[in-house]
Write a protein that binds this DNA or RNA. Structure first.
Length: 783
DNA sequence: TTGTCGCGGGG
DNA sequence: GTGTACGCGACAA
């Protein structure tokens, strides 16, 4: 059985170093492998297959193998050509149903399961990508287009930056002014030659599928330049349907496509960024430059050129654009490596192409293929999808126990709560009779611990360490999606809402238990969400006391459910569920939730909040008023820079469209552009807008600072939008006094020296509501 | 005013 | 081939 489980997880064919697979419906496949740096091409044959519910009347060209056990998809059928097989199945189904079925997708889900040819090949051979290969052995090339605009029908490519697999960067430039067909065609042709000469296994860029590939494809098509980028087959990019693709030029615009190139894997670092942020939620934006900066990948003095100006700059100062484009490909390479290791490791388990795993969701894209391969490997029939019995899916627990300000905060949370509960209580899909999902989760959790240990033992910064960390990341991704798979409704074959609900029910139970036990040990509960809780501990406690109490509570939880001490903070402002500010013991402020951080919020608001909350945490309520008054005074003296009051906006409507509707509807951003004296703008342009005196919409130009903002508008915004984030932190009278109009100070005069932030307790433990105001400086010191 | 849809990115 | 957030702005009803 152990051997079977290893096969389920890793496949079984030992062939090392596969870097790309191309398979055709006629049963031909090409496998490219790397061995000691050399590229090896193998032309092989495979027999196309699918699973069907009924194998009667398929004719002599189709062989039939019946799988064991219950399950709708019981027949493993094969033919020499996928088209022959598909036609036989459609013919038989048409006869049975009494109407013409033209396409497999018109059949009910449980009638047939047909995978793309590459996946058929990988599933039946037990092969996977990259066995025994390290990430840095892959030959990766990055390229980046510089274009005169974003519309491939009108705009042109004038520069292509290429970073080859050895890290050398080449800047290809169009001749002359970059405005001729011949020059652009020659540029594309040189790019194609360059790629062929470099012969990369992987081609990468940020937004590769959203911009560079479709743009390149369109330009090459218009200029009739053959895009012979592949390692085999005719020139041209192949389109495949993809949810996150772009609308194709011809045909049905609702069917989106992505492009593929035979023998090379196309990797878009934007997919990795999205996937990463889905879990981490720490990125300010998904743009290349912002992400590179965030991860410290950007060079200190990187050349910056706003997108819309690159072409103009190039015509005046080519060297600047060369530096700019070189940085872009370097950052794309670094980003792809930083975030791509997990997917690389995943491709050593899941029988799909690397490029498909890079963009797919975990549940349907990774767990499902693993389950399908496991059942086929075990000769077992696959169950069909089960329609919902109407049971609603119940979610996680979220409790706000107290709002306001507290001190000496401890965060405790359960590591991988849902998979742990699945393992602990053996909760798996009812129809997974081989228990593959639980076996995979068990294996992954254990092997991940081993990989983490090996990674820690390897030298920091080494390729070895990178590899182990990548394996660990991939395993974590799959483990965490096991629950998502259960809860995925009708999307996944083994989805089981009852099992999913049992997992969340146990999760709520565990959260309630740990809240009660923490409270019983003298802490004040603040907020609990899904798998973690914030508490305030008594003043006298040391960090050792905190850790001891968390360990005591951890010991009460079920086997495999591990409560961890996640961190400690000097203070917390609890505003609303999932909206709070924390102060580290070192002094740094952490703001969470939309109430405290929004990309669109005017910068002065966040500055105000940071200053005010810092005073609040120091117990200095009078200081909060000082900050408020100082901000108002600064506005009235126009001492605040104009940029601080601007909001960022994107112009999404073409001028003609806006002018047409302008009679009935004014929009600040466009009015600001028009008021600035311009009548034209380009779609996608980013602007900084604000309200100038008498409410006039205004545009702020780069490096400009006219200080003509509408003072009272921004004073109101300060009071109504930003100050209200502190409403839970002060007693109503104090709040009114702190944010009273400075002009009426005498009427409301109230000494603030004695005022203190408050904490209002809303519930003593899960389900037990109360409302008690704690007026003193709370750290849960006495109970 | 309220509800639904689509975007986030790329030059 | 099948995707999942969350918050926001644009647009329609």
């Amino acid at each position: 059985m152990a051997a079977a489980i290893a096969d389920w997880l890793w496949g079984w064919d030992p062939t090392p170093g596969i870097v790309s697979v191309a398979a055709e419906p006629d049963g031909r496949a090409i496998v490219w492998r790397r061995s000691a740096g050399e590229l090896i091409r193998e032309d092989v044959r495979f027999r196309p297959w699918m699973l069907v519910a009924d194998a009667a009347d398929l004719g002599p060209a189709v062989s039939v193998h019946e799988l064991a056990g219950p399950g709708a998809l019981r027949f493993f059928v094969r033919a020499d050509h996928l088209d022959v097989l598909t036609a036989a199945v459609l013919r038989a189904e048409s006869r049975r149903r009494g109407y013409a079925v033209r396409h497999l997708r018109d059949l009910p889900a449980d009638t047939a399961l047909a995978l793309p040819p590459e996946e058929q090949y990988l599933v039946t051979t037990g092969r996977v990508y990259f066995r025994g290969l390290s990430y840095d052995e892959l030959h990766r090339l990055q390229f980046d287009l510089e274009t005169t605009g974003l519309d491939a029908d009108r705009d042109r490519i004038f520069v292509i930056a290429v970073r080859d697999p050895h890290g050398r960067t080449t800047i290809l430039e169009a001749d002359g002014a970059g405005d001729s067909d011949a020059g652009e065609a020659a540029l594309i042709a040189r790019f194609v030659d360059h790629v062929r000469a470099s012969d990369p296994d992987v081609i990468e860029n940020h937004n590769l599928h959203g911009f560079d590939l479709p743009f390149l494809e369109r330009r090459a098509q218009q200029l009739r330049v053959p895009l012979a980028l592949g390692r085999a087959g005719p020139p041209g990019l192949r389109a495949r349907p993809a949810r996150r693709g772009v609308a194709p030029r011809t045909g049905d615009a609702t069917r989106k496509v992505r492009y593929t190139i035979v023998g090379r894997e196309l990797i878009d670092s934007m997919d990795a960024v999205r996937r990463h942020d889905f879990a981490a939620h720490d990125l300010p934006s998904y743009g290349l430059k912002a992400v590179a900066r965030h991860y410290g990948l950007a060079e200190a003095e990187r050349e910056e050129i706003p997108g819309a100006q690159v072409y103009d700059v190039w015509r005046r100062d080519r060297a600047r654009v060369v530096r700019y484009a070189s940085s872009d490909v370097a950052e794309a390479a670094a980003l792809a490596r930083l975030l791509g290791g997990g997917t690389f490791a995943l491709a050593q388990m899941v029988p799909r192409r690397y490029e498909r795993l890079a963009e797919t969701g975990a549940a349907t894209g990774m767990v499902d293929p693993l389950l399908v391969r496991a059942y086929i490997r075990s000769g077992a029939a696959l169950p069909g999808h089960e329609p919902s019995d109407g049971t609603p899916h119940s979610g996680a627990a979220l409790h706000l126990f107290a709002a306001g300000v507290a001190h000496r905060i401890v965060k405790a949370d359960v590591a991988s709560l849902y998979p742990s509960l699945m393992r602990s209580y053996r909760i798996g899909p009812a129809r997974d009779r081989l228990d593959v999902l639980l076996a995979l989760v068990d294996q992954l959790v254990e092997q991940r611990l081993a990989a983490k240990a090996l990674g820690k033992a390897a030298p920091p910064g080494s390729g070895e360490r990178f590899g182990y960390e990548a394996v660990s990341a991939a395993m974590k991704l799959v483990v965490n999606s096991a629950y998502g798979y259960l809860a995925a409704g009708s999307l996944t074959r083994f989805a089981d809402v009852h099992a999913a609900n049992e997992v969340t029910r146990r999760g709520r139970e565990v959260l309630a238990l740990l809240c009660r036990e923490l409270a019983a040990r003298g802490t004040t509960l603040l907020e609990a969400d899904t798998d973690g809780v914030y508490v305030a501990v008594p003043q006298a406690w040391t960090e050792a006391d905190e850790r001891r109490v968390v360990a005591e509570v951890a010991a009460l939880l079920p086997d495999k459910v591990q409560l961890e001490y996640d961190g400690r903070y000097a203070a917390m402002l609890s505003h609303e569920p999932k909206n709070y500010a924390l102060q580290r013991y070192g002094g740094g402020l952490v703001m969470r939730g939309v109430a405290f951080r929004s990309s669109r919020a005017e910068p002065f608001g966040e500055t105000f909040l940071r200053d005010a909350i810092t005073r609040l945490f120091a117990g200095d309520v009078a200081g909060v008023r000082d900050v408020y008054l100082a901000t108002i005074t600064a506005f009235r003296q126009r001492a605040i820079a104009t940029r601080e009051v601007t909001a960022r906006a994107r112009l999404t409507k073409p001028p003609a469209e806006y002018y047409a509707a302008r009679e009935s509807r004014h929009e600040l951003s466009y009015e600001a552009v028009i008021a600035s004296g311009r009548t034209e703008w380009t779609v996608g342009e980013r602007v900084h807008v604000y309200r100038a005196v008498r409410g006039r919409p205004a545009l702020l130009a780069e490096d400009d600072d006219p200080r003509d903002y509408d003072i009272e508008h921004y004073v109101r915004l300060l009071r109504d939008t930003f100050a209200t984030r502190l409403v839970r932190a002060l007693a109503p009278d104090d709040y009114a006094a702190v944010f009273a109009d400075p002009d009426q100070l005498s009427l409301f005069a109230r000494p603030l020296d004695a005022a203190r932030p408050i904490l209002t307790r809303l519930a003593s433990e899960p389900g037990v509501e109360l409302e008690v105001r704690v007026d003193h400086d709370v750290g849960g010191e006495s109970r």
